[in-house]
Design a binder for these strands. Sequence first.
DNA 1: TTGTAAGCGTTATCAT
DNA 2: ATGATAACGCTTACAA
Lengths: 349, 349
Amino acid sequence: MKKAPTIRDVAATAGVSVSVVSRVLNDGSVAPATRERVVAAIAELGFRPRAAARELNGAGLTIGLVLADLTNPFFARVADRIVWEARARGVQVVLMTTQEDPHIEAETLATLLDRSVGGVIATPTGGNIDQWSRLQEVGVDLVFVDRSIAALENTDVVSIQNDASAATATEHLIGLGHDRIGLISGPLSTSTGTARIAGYQAALARAGIPSDTELVRGVPFRGGAGADAVAALLSLPEPPTALIVANTAQVQSSMRQLYQMGIEIPQQLSVIVFDDNPWTELVSPPLSVIRQPIDMLARHSVDLVLGRMQGKLPVGPRIIEVQAEFVSRSSSATRSVASPTAHDAVSHP
Amino acid sequence: MKKAPTIRDVAATAGVSVSVVSRVLNDGSVAPATRERVVAAIAELGFRPRAAARELNGAGLTIGLVLADLTNPFFARVADRIVWEARARGVQVVLMTTQEDPHIEAETLATLLDRSVGGVIATPTGGNIDQWSRLQEVGVDLVFVDRSIAALENTDVVSIQNDASAATATEHLIGLGHDRIGLISGPLSTSTGTARIAGYQAALARAGIPSDTELVRGVPFRGGAGADAVAALLSLPEPPTALIVANTAQVQSSMRQLYQMGIEIPQQLSVIVFDDNPWTELVSPPLSVIRQPIDMLARHSVDLVLGRMQGKLPVGPRIIEVQAEFVSRSSSATRSVASPTAHDAVSHP
DNA sequence: TTGTAAGCGTTATCAT
DNA sequence: ATGATAACGCTTACAA
């Protein structure tokens, strides 16, 4: 259990002072000849600067990643890519999850302070507005990914074009002859929720279809809310013939509910869900999806935090929206004449 | 951007020395009256010890989590639970992924050294044996979860009862009349791979069924190896009538291949896969699975590292095996007379 | 039981 | 361009 070489050891074997070594470690200016000797010494000793010591000086290269729920394939992939991108830049990631619980999130934010992280990438629950901004006040660079909070106007955000994507999905269904399209979306407290609803309504409006507020369900991210919304939607007197599950966090529970109810897709109900993953085309029928370019989300997020941390970015919040791709599969089809539920519904000729 | 209170501030407002504060922070012995005053001061100032400073003294409470691939729902859930369990104990988690690449893993291990983490929970790729043991020599407590490396005998391991689980699945299929059962397993360099194969063979032996080595495929964790193995297995002159995908990392690609080949399940081929997730019962037909108690794996892993880090555990490696549950669904059924491929196979009467 | 003081490994501030 | 040296915030012998 012999100890690792320190910067002092390097300085000694290179015949220079610690400050010189520190300079070559960072981007300081050092005489070419000297630098070479130091580099050699570093290699020879296998020296690696200790992250803890750096962080103590506020010079650490560690970011916090606050995700809602790793159980959701979408967030899992986001984590995967972010860790990947961070690693490529020599940055470590401390992972924390909120389980969509603002209380846990608050605790998490407190912990983040102790960690001396320089930046944070997060999918906020929607609450803890004060805590988030306090984090920023302490100098921690913050960037929201996927979701954001309207009240926090001064924060960088990376997400897909939520409105446009929702509109695309809606238009696709309209083109298929549907005029009662259900929408299960995220909470109105997040930009994701409002944007997707906006896109949906815009598409409806353009097609001259009146938008029925009953068909729009803004469900919270956590819990079985997705399933409940599905059930509620289908038990409407005039149930939708098509459904868009625009709440990424709830696709699984929504789909499960649909299958459990024995709804025939797309005969009884056309379905489009936000977020693609390897399983969506394995279920029957294969699902039409909005595929989010997760790698882009990740890359931009990491670039942003790091850019901020190194002060290489102009002031003012950066809003980056990447394009999502609509993938049409078998779960969305032409509207059939029959009503989706067995109400013995009288058709209006 | 005013600075956070330090331990010295607390000491001052409590009218004691820093060491006393440090003692109440940790488990030190302090006079009840004094302790109370210190606690009050801490609360009043909202003091929180900085992780970096602690780690510099080797007293940090941070663990490294080295996972293969967050894209795989199994590992994602493992991460989710481990982060959860860690948080419950006031421990932070630095996440790193290897993408099943030993080279990246090596890099990761180096980084772990700089991080001054006290412990590491990992799913090793199978390589980097020297590096892993060096990590241990430096005093980092290591526990493998899910997978392990045979050569590293002195390491704690938490996993499911791989042999028993594989045996259960095999017996289930045998009971269904199958005698040619394919097995796609992990690499032989990991305990997971060998154990699952062993269980499978044991079950076969008990039933008096000769084990055909051609039916067993130990495929590497990364890449599309699972799909290839499936294809190879089914193009055998005497293809299996049942298949166990015992390589958790490859279920997705294996299933995809099966669907793409248009294999009818379970008519042409009965299938059982290791690892359950929300989608397995949404695909058609719903998959029979070995459900791994991920929460148990996580809890034990965290308990182990922390136990080691605090020296509260007897010496000698700890091998914890939790029980997995076999869930029978529609993908496994009685063997049909027909051969799974259209070879116009001559039946041997 | 409590206090003093010496680190822990870097970075940052000055001089030189 | 380089070198002392003081922080950084905490833990931990060692004293009292």
